[in-house]
Each structure stands twice: as C-alpha cells, then as structure tokens.
Design a protein around this nucleic acid. Structure first.
Lengths: 130, 130
DNA sequence: GCCTCTGTTCTATTACTTGTATAACAGATA
DNA sequence: TATCTGTTATACAAGTAATAGAACAGAGGC
C-alpha cells in the first residue's frame, strides 16, 4: 500500500492517514477484507510514532471503515460494495458538502466547474477499480 | 444577518462562523459590499468573546472573502459574481473534494447520490439568490 | 475637544489537542 | 518461549482554542 503524508502540512498526521486510507478504499486499491499494515510497521515506514497511526486507525474504526482484531490487526470492513450508508450518514455528509460547495461558489467556481470536477473525481475512483 | 453556531460542537467556534459566513455569501444573503457586524457586536450576539469572532474574520480575510477597514469594519469583498477564482484555488479545492467524495463512496453513496446531492446544494444556493 | 465606535495589539490564563516517548499487558502464532 | 499483534497508561513538549482585560489608533458625530 502506497501512502504518502506531508509532515509539514497543517493537517494533523493522523487525519492525513485517515484521508489517504479512505481514498484508497474509494479507488479500490483497498477492498473489504484487505489488511492494513500494523500500527508499528506503518509508523516505521512513515517515520512517525505508532501511537499516531493508532489514532488514525481508531478514527477509521469509529467511522465503520475498518475492523480491528487483536490478533490479525486492522482489516478493511467497508467499501463501496458493502451496501447503502448507515442511517444519518448521508445528511451529516451533505452538511459538510454544503460548506465545501459554498467555498467554491464564493471563490467563483461555476455550477458546471463544481459538477464537472465532482464527476472527474468520481470517474477517477471508478476508473481505477476496473 | 442570521448566524447560528453550536457551542457544544467539536468544530471550533471561529470555524463555524467562517463556514456560516461563506454559506451566506454563497446563497446571496450576503453580497459583495455588504457589511458584517462588528467583532464586538457579533461576540455579544453569539454570547462569545470578540477575539473569537476576530479570528474568524481574520480567516475570511486571508481567504480573500472579506475586506477589513479599521473605520468601517468588515465588508464582503468577494461573491460568486466577482469573477473566476485565484490561481491555484481550484486544484487545492479539488483535493479536499476528493477526500470528501472518497468518504461518501466508501460509505455506500452511489455516483448518482453524490451528484444529486451536489446539485441539490447548488440549486439551494441559486434558488435563494432569485 | 470630547465621546463613541471600529479594528489592532499585547499579555495572560485555562483547557484541550497533537505528536512523541517509554513501558507494560494480553492474546495469538510459530 | 519468543515474537507478533493491538491496548492501555503515563508523561512530556508544543501548539491550539477560547476567554479575559487592557490599551492604542483612526474615523465619525455632537
């Protein structure tokens, strides 16, 4: 699993890990059932403390994306083939979408810009899954 | 200007203010040239310290959304009619969109769900501007 | 001139977050 | 037994979030 983070970014490392894992699941480079590296291993690979990785995995577990076994480590639990979202997810997600789209609109991206880029991103996800 | 924040939320207050102002500009309830309440006034209205409001305004200023005069206070500087986005904005924005869409995809929202909700939000922005 | 409004700056405090660090524990496996 | 896994606990340094009080400078009204 390729996973690059930016130590100089203002986004917390654990959140960058969460985001990259989520994107890997969306593109299909990680699928339900696939194992993630152990917290200690990924910590070494990224040159960071394993507690930071552990926090990222814990976030993903709370979100229902991965499952964590004491024996076999972290395993992807959910991907786009796992059925419809849990109750309440879609509306909470849309509230965050609203803020992001407001930002785009205010800065001058048109409706077509926004929808076009959304389609591009989704095409990218589906394209890599083929 | 209606502006509601949630003091119990895990999102920082100053960011909630930023988000609400941005959404108000997107819907047209705030337009370029419109004044924002003074930091002290909004602080009183929301029951928070004016330094917190000041931080939110400073964020919006850094993002180019408002202009701040020592005399006349904060004024909206940019809205959807102010032309195309600054260089680099669109790509940085799309990177954040990618993470948000990855989250939706992983949790089982389909392509049509995502695009439909995006259109709904954008329709909401344009609808309120009429 | 005086008063009041505006943002700005400074210092300070409290509480929480982020990341690192070390250590120890428990379960599974070779 | 030795080694791998996640888990838990504690601690520390640095930064962030929010509050608070005080003071300054510019602009406007009376």
């Amino acid at each position: 699993m390729l996973l690059t983070i930016d130590l100089d970014s203002d986004t917390p490392i654990y959140q960058q890990i969460r985001d990259r894992v989520l994107e890997a699941v969306a593109t299909g480079s990680l699928r339900a059932g696939d194992p993630l590296p152990s917290t200690r291993q990924l910590g070494v690979d990224l040159g960071i403390n394993f507690h930071t990785v552990s926090k990222a995995y814990d976030l993903l577990r709370q979100e229902g994306v991965i499952r964590i076994n004491r024996k076999s480590g972290a395993v992807v639990r959910r991907d786009h083939t796992s059925g419809p979202p849990d109750a309440g997810f879609a509306d909470a997600w849309q509230a965050r979408l609203r803020t992001l789209l407001a930002e785009a609109t205010t800065h001058g991206l048109t409706r077509d810009d926004v929808l076009g880029r959304s389609q591009d991103v989704l095409d990218g996800f589906e394209g890599e899954r083929s």
